[in-house]
Structure formats: C-alpha cells, structure tokens
Amino acid sequence: MFENFDFEIIVTSIPFLIEGMGLTLLLTVLAIVGGLALGTVLALCRLAPYRWLSLFAGSYVNFFRSMPLILVIFWFYFLVPFIVGRPVGGFYSVLVAFIMFEAAYYCEIMRAGIQSVRQGQVHAGQALGLTYRQNMRYIVLPQAFRAMIPILLTQAIILFQDTSLVYVVGLRDFLVAADIVANRDNRLMEMFLTVALVYFVMCLAGQLGIRKIQKKFATG
C-alpha cells in the first residue's frame, strides 16, 4: 500500500496547503479574540447584580452549548446575510458563528475564573474606594485571566480543530485545500496523512506550551 507513496505531491502542494493553513489560523485567532471579548462581557452580565442581565447571559450560554457547532455554522451562513441585508461571504458568516459559539464557552470559563478570585481581594479593592467597575478591571479580571490561561488555551486548541468544519460552507481552509489536492491527483493517502500529522504536531506543541505555562504559574 505504501510502495508507490508519493512524497513529491506533498512537497509541490505545500504553497497551496499553507494558504489553507493561513485561513485556518486567521479564523482561529479572530474567533479567539472576538469570543474572549464577547465571553467576558457575557460573564460580567452573568455575575451582574441585575436578574434580567444574568438571566439573559445564562440563557445564551445554555442555548449555544446545546447546539452542535456545525448547525450554528449553517444557520449563520443564512442568517448573517439576512440580518446585514447583503451577502457577506462565507468567511464573515463563519467568523460570526465561531465568535458567538465560542463566547458561550469562554463565558463559563471566565465566570469560574472571576469566582475563583478570593472574596478578600474584592473586599480589599472595595475598601480602597474602587468602584465595582474599577475593582473588576484592575483587581478581579487580571487575576481571573491568569488563573484561566491554561483552560483558555485548551479551548483555543479545540477551536483550532473545529475550524475544519468550515468545509460545509465552501471555505478553503487547510483541510479543504488538502482534500482538493487529494481528489485532483488521486493521492488521498498522502494528503490525509499529511493533514493528520500537521494537526497532531501543532496541537501537541500547543499542549506542551500550556503545560509549560501551567508550571510557571504554579511556582508563582
């Protein structure tokens, strides 16, 4: 089965694959940034002293966490152009879908992070005269983020893998690029082994990085 394994095809398709990887990474990074921002806002709503705000954020989180990601991607593909009133292209609709979906998970991570900051720290900030917002901004959130970095990064790795779902709306990410080459030249074995290897190595590197960061924070 491996006797006519063609390394050549892998080498010659590298530029094409890199282009796909560019889209994968761009989508991952933008979705993380957007998801974190929206997730933090949601977490603050969730913990806010107003019932309706916290109820809204809670429902949002529960809703998106009960939906398969692929369904959310589909929906937003039709929904976003409808709301905006003009075609926006697959990339933006998928990006919005990922941000909204990831925000639900980041919200829960942030909420746990905020709650992990000791009551004494909150009291110390209040006692100095900081307002609720100032206390959040300068005392609670910086400590919550630090405590959450390993889990946030783990979620980022999952997201990196999940971006491969964009094939359903016809975007050419890393996986789709490999698939195109594989079918064009009938080199399925070569291309899908390469894809698996690249995903594996990148995720492994990410996990090792997380472990290093965890150790650094554990020792203060």
């Binding site: 004494g120 720290q121 009291h123 110390a124 900030g125 209040q126 006692a127 100095l128 005269g129 900081l130 307002t131 300068y138 005392i139 910086p142 400590q143 630090r146």
Partner: peptide, 20 residues
C-alpha cells in the same frame, strides 16, 4: 459608598495585597 470607603483605611487578616 466607594467615596466614603476611600476615606477609611482597612487592613485584613490575610493582608490582601494584590498579587499581580
């Protein structure tokens, strides 16, 4: 309250310095 608290110092059992 924040304005009033700013005029009253408070020291806690566990120090509560901001670690970051």
């Amino acid at each position: 309250l924040p304005r009033l608290r700013a005029r009253i110092g408070m020291v806690f059992q566990n120090f509560e310095l901001f670690p970051h």
